[in-house]
Amino acid sequence: MKKKEVMILEDLLGSNKKIAGDIRKKLSEKGILAINLLSSPGAGKTSLLEQLSEVLAPKYQMAVIEGDIETERDAERIRNKGIQAWQISTGGACHLDAKMIGKLFSEIPTDLDFLFIENVGNLVCPASFDLGENLRCVLLSVPEGDDKPKKYPKAFITSDVLILSKTDLLGKLPFDIERAKKEGLDVNPQMKVFQTSAVDGTGINRLARYFIDCLKELRRSHA
C-alpha cells in the first residue's frame, strides 16, 4: 500500500453553481428576470409579493416559487391573487438549492416577465446557494432590529437589494432606519436600499419600478 497526496481544488458548491448558471442562462435568454427573496421567517416576503402582484400583474406576467419546510400555505396565498405559484416543501432542509429549481424548470411558462423565488425563511443558509437568479433581495423587517446586517453578514453581502420592510411600525419599535441602512451598506456598499410596508403600501410602486427597470436592462443585454 502506498500513500499519495493529490491536489484537488474543487468547490464544494461547484455542482450547485453549475446548475444555477444554466438556469440563469436559460431564463435570461427567454427574457425572464428571476428574483430570489431572502429573509428571516416572518419578515414579510409573502406579503411583499402579494402587494407587488397588485402593481405588476396587470401589465406583466409573473409567477412565484415558494420555498418552505412544510405546508402549501404561501403558494395558496399567491394563487389567491391569481398568480401561478409552485410550492417546494423542503421537508426539513433550511434552504432552497439550484437542483430544486431545476426540477420545476419545464413547468415555468416561457412568456413570463418575472419569476420570484421566495426562499425558506432563514437569514443564514440560503445565502450560500445560488438559485440562478438575476437579482437577490434581502428583507430586514422593523421588528427584527436594525443590527442584523453585521450579525448575519453573508445574506447582505451576497444581495443586490436591501428591502427594509414593515416601515409602518417605525416609531412604534426601537428601530433606527438610518442605522439599519448604514449597517447594510457597511457590509455591502453596492446594495440598493428600499423601504416598504405591505400594510400601508409605502415603497411598493418604487420597488416594482426598479424591478421593471432591471427587466428592461436584462432584455437589452440579451437582445
Binding site: K4, V6, D11
Partner: peptide
C-alpha cells in the same frame, strides 16, 4: 468602497491523501 474580493469566500476541497 469599489473593491474586489480576493479571498475569504472560498469553500474548497484543496487536497486529499490516498492509499493506493
Amino acid at each position: 468602497t469599489d473593491l474586489e474580493n480576493l479571498e475569504g469566500t472560498e469553500l474548497y476541497l484543496e487536497k486529499m491523501e490516498l492509499e493506493i
